[in-house]
């Protein structure tokens, strides 16, 4: 009896450091945001007061909120599947016995280690009309003067392309690790059975990579909602919010509008979206995953 109590105390003590950090930096801020979303913002002229669901009503009527939410969905749809397909392709390629394998792997991984702000500064000049790299190349084919970042029709595509370029190499590393964990016996067996390479990939390799895919999918989804550094440099959300994303809008509301309450309200929505995404993916994909 006495001994088991000690074991419990011991266990809790072991848990304590992680628990303190989690509560202080994850759970408390989340709950504080939820609480704040029911109050009006505080200033010396107008003290904070309880306003119930007013902030949520404001949000529902805020066209910019709906626009950034829609943008974010398109951004996720544009970046996530493409990054994953490219990551798998690159991983298969550099997993084979090709000359200069180390060099190619490093080349694919390089965009990942560059800071996003630096990358955005480089791409800002790539996309620049006429003087930019892309327009320079296109001008050889007689196509000129695209205002890539200055038109609402093209700006989101530009962000998506840059993000895929930045992220695919990172996901490749996970797929590479996954591929190397697959025993070579499978390939020998498949070859003996006369399976083609595509068949082998589709029936053996891809299913065995599912745990990696789940991990990458969740990360890519979450990233598509939390990576906004590039917006500060490239577009500041413009033109007319055509490239703004939810988290960037939260930043604007909190630090440019200084409206902590409305920022908290938007944060609650972001948290809810991310939670639903993560949980949903676990439940939907669980039955397709073969853990070895």
């Amino acid at each position: 009896m006495h001994r088991s109590l000690l074991v419990h105390v011991y266990g809790w003590l072991l848990l304590l450091p992680a628990a303190v950090l989690l509560i202080a930096f994850t759970h408390y801020p989340a709950i504080a945001s939820l609480a704040q979303s029911f109050f009006s913002p505080k200033s010396a002229l107008y003290p904070s007061q309880f306003v119930g669901l007013d902030n949520y009503a404001t949000m529902a009527a805020d066209p910019v909120f709906w626009k950034v939410l829609k943008n974010n969905v398109w951004f996720a749809v544009g970046t996530v599947p493409a990054s994953i397909v490219i990551a798998i392709t690159m991983a298969l390629w550099v997993n084979g016995r090709i000359p200069g394998r180390g060099l190619v792997r490093m080349a694919y991984f390089t965009p990942t280690i560059l800071p996003m702000i630096a990358v955005a500064n480089i791409w800002l000049f790539f996309y620049s009309p006429d003087i930019g790299l892309i327009d320079q190349v296109l001008s050889n084919f007689g196509i000129r003067g695209h205002n890539w970042l200055g038109r609402p029709e093209t700006v989101m595509g530009c962000l998506i392309v840059m993000t895929i370029w930045k992220e695919a190499g990172f996901f490749m590393i996970f797929y590479l690790a996954g591929l190397q964990a697959i025993s070579p016996e499978f390939e020998e067996a498949a070859t003996l059975e006369g399976a083609g390479r595509w068949h082998y990939f589709r029936r053996v390799v891809f299913p065995l990579l599912m745990p990696t895919t789940l991990f990458v999918l969740i990360n890519a989804m979450i990233n598509s909602f939390k990576l906004v550094d590039q917006l500060f440099i490239l577009t500041k959300g413009g033109p007319d919010n055509a490239s703004s994303l939810l988290l960037y809008y939260i930043y604007q509301v909190a630090f440019s509008f200084l409206d902590e309450s409305y920022a908290a309200t938007l944060t609650v929505v972001l948290l809810a979206i991310l939670a639903v995404l993560a949980i949903g993916q676990y439940f939907l994909l669980e039955k397709h995953i073969h853990y070895q």
Binding site: N147, L149, G150, R151, I233, P239
Partner: peptide, 8 residues
């Protein structure tokens, strides 16, 4: 040019 023009 049409569209927005980048400050930077």
């Amino acid at each position: 040019p049409k569209g927005t023009i980048e400050w930077g």
